[in-house]
Nucleic acid binder design. Structure first.
Lengths: 114, 114
DNA sequence: TACCAGTACATAGTATCGCTGAGTAGTGAA
DNA sequence: TTCACTACTCAGCGATACTATGTACTGGTA
């Protein structure tokens, strides 16, 4: 992706990951592949791990270490109460922003038709 | 607004301003008040002017200095061809991201209802 | 055996971007 | 002359994603 996407992901990537964790705990490598499957093909592994460290330090997730059949042990992250609250606020912030931007988009189209 | 909004504006604020400039040139102070009217009440003046410097250096806008009846001369920014292209790419990037996030939002709601 | 791909996590350094806080300058009203 | 409004500028800060690299374990294969 381009620079635009990189900048746009700031602030949204955390919400995306929190949303992915809703109801289904996951570990870092898994989250990375999930993101890639969802179309975020260029998200760097390092980005995800750094983000996970951050949300763990903020106390938004609980962590459990589980052995893996293939490779090093996995760190499984699950959303806790505080994480769910943060996610709710993320949705509020996102909705506010998306509403306004989509409105700009539609008026822009109309301008363009003139 | 909170930190979430601050981070989310990264990458989107530039697009918002470019969209505001579509069809109607404007100067910095005017853009700031436009943003506030649109609900972005906490956008700092300094942020807008810095952004304008950036998009000017990137060659996305043409600038014209006009005297003002009240205060220092205005720098009027208007979108040029390159700016319009950048705006189009912004909409593509935005649509991609918004689509995926909105999808996550809806599946999240369904999860929550379980 | 030696090598490589896949799994899994970690981190130091960099660039970008928005915010804070302060400053400069002009106008007009109390 | 003091204040409010208009209008722009800039240095320093914090947060976030990317780059690049490294560690470590498993299993297949030449």
């Amino acid at each position: 992706m381009g620079k635009q996407m990189t900048e746009m992901l700031k602030g949204t990537l955390e919400g995306i990951v929190l949303a992915l964790l809703t109801g289904k705990p996951a570990y870092g490598y898994e989250i990375t592949t999930l993101l890639r499957d969802q179309g975020f093909t260029d998200i760097a592994e390092g980005t995800v791990y750094a983000l996970l460290v951050r949300i763990e330090q903020k106390g938004l997730v609980d962590v459990e270490k589980r052995p893996s059949e293939k490779g090093p042990p996995r760190k499984v992250y699950s959303l806790n109460t505080q994480g769910k609250q943060e996610l709710e606020e993320f949705w509020r912030t996102w909705s506010f922003l998306a509403e306004r931007i989509d409105q700009l988009h539609s008026t822009d189209r109309i301008e363009g038709e003139k």
